[in-house]
């Protein structure tokens, strides 16, 4: 369904460019290529970050309010320079954008309302792998009319990623463990970060490819050397209490360690490289390998 929406918005854009029929801003001035969008609003944390990296000054006018939340956003300082939005159709419409960037899981109602109001919306699927990141960077470049910058960023990303891949003598077993006992398998971005940092994901061994609930006792029996948990939120919840369960505490005392998946893990952007580097450091501390 999200793919359909993506295709249909692409087809719509093409139609506007070729025929100059729709009363969209700037349409029809150039017979072959539509001018790049001039007022871009992003309503998804991950498109926020890609757009901030690629947009020309002044092109991006607003990012989602999550972009300034240090628990999930890797670009808080940059995001403070933009107007934050809550992602509601009315609020976005009043900003008079000529392009809205959304995630494929952004509220369907908001996106179709914006479409009815005549605003072009491009949706980005989340990155599920490191290869996806490259694809999303290039797509963002095309959408913003910044192909050259996007190609440079993608090349740089691939080169730095290649440099991080080192032959590891040991691949210790690790587990991603979040609130409610949620874990992630190898067909997820976090799972791929694990693999890239030369760790074996126990969730993948247990048959998880995407996300799912891993009972605490199965985790304990799988004996991972490293547990990676999520950023903790203020206030209290029983969902997060599982991360303080004495069974995990005892297990930590047995020479195992844990670390936190922070904002660098959330989105498919080059910041993922920072997550991989940090995790590789933790792996070396666990195995005692020299860098």
């Amino acid at each position: 369904m999200s793919a359909c929406a993506e295709i249909s918005s692409a087809v719509l854009a093409l139609g506007v460019a070729l025929l100059g029929a729709a009363p969209a801003a700037g349409a029809g001035r150039s017979p072959a290529v539509a001018p790049p969008p001039a007022r871009v609003v992003s309503i998804n944390l991950c498109t926020d970050q890609l757009a901030m990296m690629l947009a020309r000054p002044g092109q991006l006018i607003s990012v989602s309010r999550l972009a300034v939340d240090p628990r999930v956003s890797a670009m808080v300082d940059r995001a403070r320079g933009f107007r934050p939005n809550q992602g509601g159709a009315e609020e976005i419409f009043l900003m008079r954008p000529d392009l809205v960037l959304a995630g494929s899981y952004t509220t369907q109602a908001t996106v179709s309302m914006l479409g009815r109001l005549g605003i072009r919306v491009v949706r980005f699927r989340p990155a599920y792998s490191l290869a996806d990141i490259r694809a999303r960077i290039l797509k963002m470049g095309t959408v913003l009319g910044r192909e050259k910058q996007a190609r440079a960023l993608a090349e740089d990303f691939s080169r730095r990623l290649q440099a991080l891949r080192v032959a590891a003598r040991q691949r210790p077993r690790a587990a991603l463990y979040f609130a409610n006992g949620y874990t992630l398998g190898d067909k997820t971005l976090a799972g791929q970060i694990l693999t890239a940092a030369a760790l074996d994901n126990i969730a993948a061994d247990l048959g998880f490819s995407g996300g799912g609930n891993l009972p605490l006792e199965v985790l304990v029996m799988a004996r991972p050397r490293l547990v990676i948990t999520g950023t903790r939120y203020p206030g209290a919840s029983r969902a997060e209490a599982i991360l303080d369960h004495p069974a995990l505490g005892r297990w930590r005392k047995g020479g195992r360690s844990d670390t936190i998946a922070d904002a660098d893990w959330v989105c498919g952007t080059p910041h993922v490289l920072r997550a991989i580097r940090g995790l590789a450091r933790v792996r070396r501390a666990v195995t005692g390998e020299k860098p």
């Binding site: 609130a179 409610n180 939120y233 203020p234 206030g235 209290a236 919840s237 029983r238 969902a239 997060e240």
Partner: peptide, 13 residues
Amino acid sequence: LSPNPFAASEIVF
């Protein structure tokens, strides 16, 4: 009203 995003789902518990 809790600042914790998981708290609301604990109504069920």
